[in-house]
Design a binder for these strands. Sequence first.
RNA 1: GCCGCGGUAGCUCAGUGGUAGAGCGCACCCUUGGUAAGGGUGAGGUCGAGAGUUCAAUCCUCUCCCGUGGCACCA
Length: 642
Amino acid sequence: MSISLKFPDGAERSYEDGVTPLAVAEGISKSLAKKVVAAKIDGGWWDLNRPIEQGGKFELVTRDSADGLEVLRHDAAHVLAQAVQELFPGTQVTIGPTVEDGFYYDFARDEPFSTDDFEKIEKRMKEIVDADLPIQREVWNREEAIAHFNSIGETFKAQIIDDIIPPGEPITVYRQGKDWKDLCRGPHLPSTGRLGKAFKLMKLAGAYWRGDAKNQQLQRIYGTAWSDEKQLEAYLHRLEEAEKRDHRKLGRQLELFHFQEEGRGMVFWHPKGWRLWQVLENYLRRRLDAAGYQEVKAPQILDRALWEKSGHWQKFHANMFTCETVEGEVLAVKPMNCPGHVQIFNQGQKSYRDLPLRLSEFGSCHRYEPSGALQGLMRVRAFVQDDAHIFCTEEQLVPETIAFCKLLRSIYEDVGVELHAVKLALRPEVRFGSDEIWDKAERILQDAAEAAGETLELLPNEGAFYGPKLEFHLRDAIGRTWQCGTHQLDFVLPERLEAEYVGEDGQKHRPVMFHRAIFGSFERFLGILIEHYAGAFPLWMAPVQVVVATITAEADAYAREAAGALREAGLRVELDLRNEKVGYKVREHSLAKVPVIAVVGKKEAEGRSVALRRLGSDAQSVVPLDAAASQLATEATPPDLR
RNA sequence: GCCGCGGUAGCUCAGUGGUAGAGCGCACCCUUGGUAAGGGUGAGGUCGAGAGUUCAAUCCUCUCCCGUGGCACCA
């Protein structure tokens, strides 16, 4: 019997039955055999040393490919687990998957690990690689496997077979060396030596078994692994560079904001940071005005009764800031703006002619976030949402969603950020509204977003209690993703808060409501922007756009005049008349990421010009003052006004 | 909230069982210098808070607070 393998280049070759992918690779070239880590047959993984059972589309996966890295990282996780179990007897293994740029393994052990243990563990891992232990795939009987893992005290593994692997699916166990075994779907390398040593343990964290805080907390060790040392070095270097753009660091360096103990999770915005905020708020306000929104302002504190009616009290009151008055009223600082906007909608009578009605608010919200959740500007307790609620008819749901997606994309393009992913969060376990309503809401939102051209990633169980939501995710400097924009469809709150309009038929109808935000929160969005630009904002956003710096005191009077002319042209200008050398001033303002330095000395004063120097370039261009003012003002025009 | 790691001058960080240092910044003086750091002098610290061990604690132990990396949570 022979089998026929179809290669990616279209070639088809036949092999003897039982040939291994490794043998196939060796038949092609020595160097390929060295680089290969696994194979794929008809898209399914196949171990290198596993005899091929049937022909099909065949692909050899090399260690430097994306798929190959997955295999290496998965093997690194196994080698980590073996090392840990050898060094710390009694430790139970649980799961060890790959993640972006690396892998982790969750261990159950009474004693805590410390990052001081990493050196020892890495050393043992390298010994396991040097030993080049053979890795063998074995298929086990389900009941025997459960009994085996229970008998050796690996109760988590037994539980995985029992609860997670669907009946009928083969139970595969990989034997690494003589005695060490792990339940695993594979694929794995033929031996540990092929892994190489381009890995490093990175961090230690607690993690709950099966992601549930009610379960036992395990100890998770994260690592990174690459195909060679050079890639590992490059990755570590990238991380270091990314840390330099941490918005918390830049916030201090650029004097944008600060935090202090007395206001955990609350931002003190400094003049430059607040200027940046204002620039973006003004920009966004113009865009919303143009898109048919009407801005409102609702009270900051409202009676508990309203939050009970909306349903927020039941679900979130532990996370709300509340107070009781001397007269015994219980009030809550608003954690979100929707009930307020519905009250505005409910005033007077609304007609179908008023719909869609888009009420927007730069709404200041407060939420008591768990202490461990706080993260610089990204997760705070006091924040401002660029919130809006769109009240509309069912027929308007699709066009409003399309309009929103377009508006969001246009705004993200203007401010220069790149969407990382668009996700659709579906019904959570605890929710209001019938299943029929949820079926309808999810279907409409998905269809509408797809009609808007969005490609969606589905997130089961992650919707709001009142409806499904589209989430627009951005990435920070070190690659973490954050939900910024959101577009949520809600059939529930209009009902609970009794919103109504009079239809064409003269009868009262219930509007449907969208909750939507483009930045999400100003705090988080500014955090993302700071990291995205590493503090070097485009001219229209920069808190200080131009610094006029003198060379000698002789030029002071002219420098004042020049700064005045630039301000007159609408630019944000600072004047630096200090008794310092021009090189010192250039260095300082460059580090402060000021986009334009206008140097003036005796020559410029006489010629009524300025010597412009752009951030990131050491070239200078001497331009007449009035030309510089009009040219820079044009350049500094926000994108929507150009 | 949970697990790991950390907290020394405004910032970045070094250091020690005998109560502390650097660079930058800041203040003052000299210097007016043409595009990424001119020179000098000086001020500035209950070494996160509290308790314990010790003749003696910034250093060792415990508790708490805060930060940080994850997990859980996120209307």
